[in-house]
Amino acid sequence: MRHLLSTRELDRATAVGILDVAEDMADVADREIKKLPTLRGKTVVNLFFEDSTRTRTSFEVAAKRLSSDLVNFSAKGSSLSKGESLKDTAQTLAAMGADAVVIRHASSGAAQVLAQSNWIDAAIINAGDGTHEHPTQALLDAFTMRRRIHGRASRGHDLDGLRVTIVGDILHSRVARSNVWLLQALGASVHLVAPATLLPSELANWPVTVGYDLDEAIRQSPDAIMMLRIQAERMSAAYFPNAREYGRQWGLDDERLARLGPDTMVMHPGPMNRGLEISAGAADSSRSTVLEQVANGVSIRMAVLYLLLASETVA
């Protein structure tokens, strides 16, 4: 693995391998000194053209636990907000000797463009590109599901037979895309639920089933239900009438929560709109994995950095 751009490029063995390394990394978090010397002398750059405190911080903690030097290169107040191009920024980072670039960008495909270019030789990690993919989010989601099922004995397991329902703005969700491909690779089956306006117009090639009705999806008692964040601007673009109607039709409220199985995982990539796509009761219930997802994000990002940066010196 040279870059991590998309979950589509991960086969089952590779994906399970990443999750297993993340288990090792999770063990580090339980030690008194939460730090490994593995990436000492390596420089990791957080290149965030879009604000995302959560993802940026998660990568930062991960890079520091592996003893690498972490540089934050964020949009606000820097040359990035003054119109400097991706190319110039990349060449600048290359000149400074970056070993890995974690990129968040508002344009779909930005990470791939960077990886294909001859502007920079570093390992590229996609931390969310437009409405395309967010591969480390899907990996941490899979890791979370696997741990809920297998606990400390998770190593080596895939997600064969797991039934996952993803609800919300599929059309604009990089989290949904990355999850669809990764869950398929791991053997899970995926059901998408959304209003027709928030589904891609052509889904024939997607390894999923699709429905409009959340209550029907709940009746099928999925093993995990993943609620996606709804952006306020979708309302003004006529994707749905208003927040009240969206919540009533596609929100996981307390009443729907009660109809879910006792072991159904309630997932959300955060940040949550409590009371819109998810009720406080659902977010805070014992079925909710939201905080585990955050904790596991660090382990997954440590694993990805390790596999991209440490194994190249081993190999």
Partner: peptide, 18 residues
């Protein structure tokens, strides 16, 4: 709009031009 609306735009996450 960024590209033809269809199978590929849905996968790439690029806004469709129907």
């Amino acid at each position: 709009a960024q590209m033809n609306e269809g199978v590929v735009s849905g996968e790439l996450g690029l806004q469709g031009w129907p």
